[in-house]
């Protein structure tokens, strides 16, 4: 058993064009470390240097947004499906203010 991970178009350069890959781990962070070992560079597109989930992506475990499930500490299990999507956001406001709004 493994965890199925759906990769968005913009990150498929890291997976040789694959739309879905599989990995393992007990938490989302462990899963991302496992994926990064197979697909170098993937993790740094998802996790900031400070160790938080990047604001430009949404990650879901099955039907849940991980931001409401403990973020990178969220538990994952064999058979789960993890979906990565680019966050869609923007607007006329300056970047610093927008970041502050998102917290």
């Amino acid at each position: 058993m493994a965890i199925d991970v759906r990769i968005p178009t913009i990150l498929r350069s890291h997976t040789g064009g694959a739309k879905a890959v599989s990995g393992s781990g007990d938490t989302l962070l462990q899963l991302l470390d496992n994926l990064d070992a197979q697909h170098p560079g993937l993790k740094q597109r998802l996790v900031t240097p400070e160790g938080g989930l990047h604001r430009f992506v949404n990650i879901y475990i099955n039907d849940e947004d991980v931001r409401f499930q403990g973020s990178l500490d969220a538990k994952v299990n064999d058979g789960d499906t993890v979906t990565i999507l680019p966050a869609v956001a923007g607007g006329a406001f300056g970047f610093a203010a927008a970041s502050a709004l998102r917290g």
């Binding site: 968005p8 178009t9 913009i10 430009f56 992506v57 680019p86 966050a87 869609v88 956001a89 923007g90 607007g91 006329a92 406001f93 300056g94 970047f95 927008a98």
Partner: peptide, 14 residues
């Protein structure tokens, strides 16, 4: 016209 925020978030290359 896209703001800097719009450009930073643009995540769908197609």
């Amino acid at each position: 016209y896209p703001s800097r925020t719009d450009v930073a978030y643009a995540g769908e290359p197609n």
